[in-house]
Structures are given as C-alpha cells and as structure tokens.
Amino acid sequence: MNNLHDCRKAFARTLLELAEADARVVAVVNDSVGSSNLKEFRKKFPDRLINVGIAEQNMVGIGAGLANGGLMPFVCGASCFLTGRALEQVKVDLGYSRSNVKLCGMSSGVAYGELGPTHHSIEDMAWTRAIANMTVIVPADPAETSAALRAAAAHEGPVFLRLSRMPVPDIHPADYEFRIGRAGRLRDGSDVTLIANGVMVCRALEAAALLEKDGIEAGVLNMSTVRPLDTQAIAEAAMTGPIVTVEEHTVVGGLGSAVAEAVVESHPVRMRRLGFPGEFAPTGSPEFLFEHFGLTPEKIRLAALKVVEESARVICAVDPRG
C-alpha cells in the first residue's frame, strides 16, 4: 500500500474548518490535545478548546451540558476510555437525552498495539450501537473521515465517530458524498460480498483483488455507518451470495453481528465474521495482531473461498440436480 494517511489529520483539519464556520463548535478533551491532533485548534480557538483533565465521565457529562447551553461539542479522547469509562454517561447524558454531542473516539481498535488490551478499543462499536438514538460511524479513509465529521455536525443528535490512527490509503475521492446510514458499494461481485468498515475496508478491497485471480467475483461494501444500519444494502448483498464481514473489533456485537442480525431477518446466507474472536489480544503491534487474528488480505481471501465453497455445497445438498 502506497501513500498511507493518518486519518487524524483529516479529522483535525475538518474540525478546524467546522469551528471557523460555526461558533457553536467547541472541542472537549481529556488532556488529549496531542493524541487528538488539536494543537492547531487550540492555537486558533483557545477559548473553545475545553480541557477537562483526565476525567472521562466528567468529560461526557460536560459535553451534554455544553450542548444544553447551546454549543456543539466534539468530545475527543482515546476511544477505549471515552466509551468504556463513560458508558453510562454516553447512554444517559447523550443517547437517552438526545444531546447534540459528537463523540470522537480516537485510536480505536488495536491501534495502541503493544500497550495491550487495556488500551485496545475493540468493544466500542458493540457498546455504542446498542444505545438508542446513537449514530455510530466508522470511516475508512481521510475523505470519509472528513465527510463523516461534516455529516455528524449537520445531524441533530448524538454521534459516535470511531476514528483511527492506523495508516490507510485513499479509498474515496476528495469530493466523496457521505450519507449517514448508507453503505458504500466499492466493488461489484456476484460470488461473495465482503462487508467491512474502518481500517479493514482497504484490506477487504485487497482481498477482493486476490479473489479475482482465483476466479471469484467478490463485491465490497463499506458499512461505515453501523447504526442506523443500511439493511437494504445488506439484503441486496445476501441475495447475490455468501457474506464475509471484516472488522477491527470483537466479533461479539460489532459489525459482523449487526450484519448477521439483518441477514437472518431478510435473506439468510452463509456468513463468516472476521475480527477479534472474543478474547483479549496478546502483546504485539497492530500489524502483528492483524496477522495473528487473520485480518490480512490473504486471510480474508481464504475465509471468502471457504464460505463460497460451503455455500455451494449447501446448494448442492438442497438441489439434487446441482
């Protein structure tokens, strides 16, 4: 992969642009000015950068209060602490209250690598998508990060943006139009559909290219909004064949679960859910962990081949002429 980007740059640039255009925009941080790339924001808008110290419950509550007071806070912190530590505040002060607060979970997934499971945020999609009124977005590249941030600002209500620091290539054009709740079809294919979000989208695209050499036509769906879910796009994918989901998250409750829920209620097909298999990760860099848990293009390819084969066997068993 060439020309890789840290999406936090697009995040910081877009937040600054939003703040320039809208006086309601403020940033709230838990001593995370550096890790959220907000030094420029602080320089330009010192009074609109609110540092609450290392106190995530308070940070989310303060976000709700700032919104009550007429502002539009972007509450930024490492996703593991922002969601896990403050989950009740996310549920009550944001979701239940329908507060106009934008949660920006930085360095989600296993971006912190060797720092270990305390710093991995591989449950945040499951937690946040279970909360009513929440919108949950997992962008895949700089253009989508930027577009998702703008869409979140335009949306009245709580949004969780699950952001990453992991290097990713450009997938979308700069003028890409993002719509909350609409999946992006990045590649057509009639044999199997790979559904991914976040940093796994580029890997799913690479896997699809490998599968083409195997004679398998794999479609790729970018399911960047996990709540509300684009159930129509999922149903359409299921009509064409089996599905493999790929997420930088535990397979319990995240993207794979969300897709499976939609599939069984629309058009049941064979599925494989790739992600972290419901266990805490061993020590290792993000790339090591992706390899270890089968989240590489090659492992995605193998999972797709397997599910295509199983699917064909099932069809043969059902149809004696097959």
């Binding site: 700032l66 919104a67 007071g69 009740e88 009550v92």
Partner: peptide
Amino acid sequence: EANTGPLGHGLPIAVGAAKA
C-alpha cells in the same frame, strides 16, 4: 433540563452548561 437518575450525572452536566 437533564435526564437524571443514575447518581453523579447532574454536576458534570451543570459544569458544561455553566462553561457554555
């Protein structure tokens, strides 16, 4: 002004409102 019930939520929200 605020959905409360779980304890310890009101004061952080009030701090946010006052800061606003």
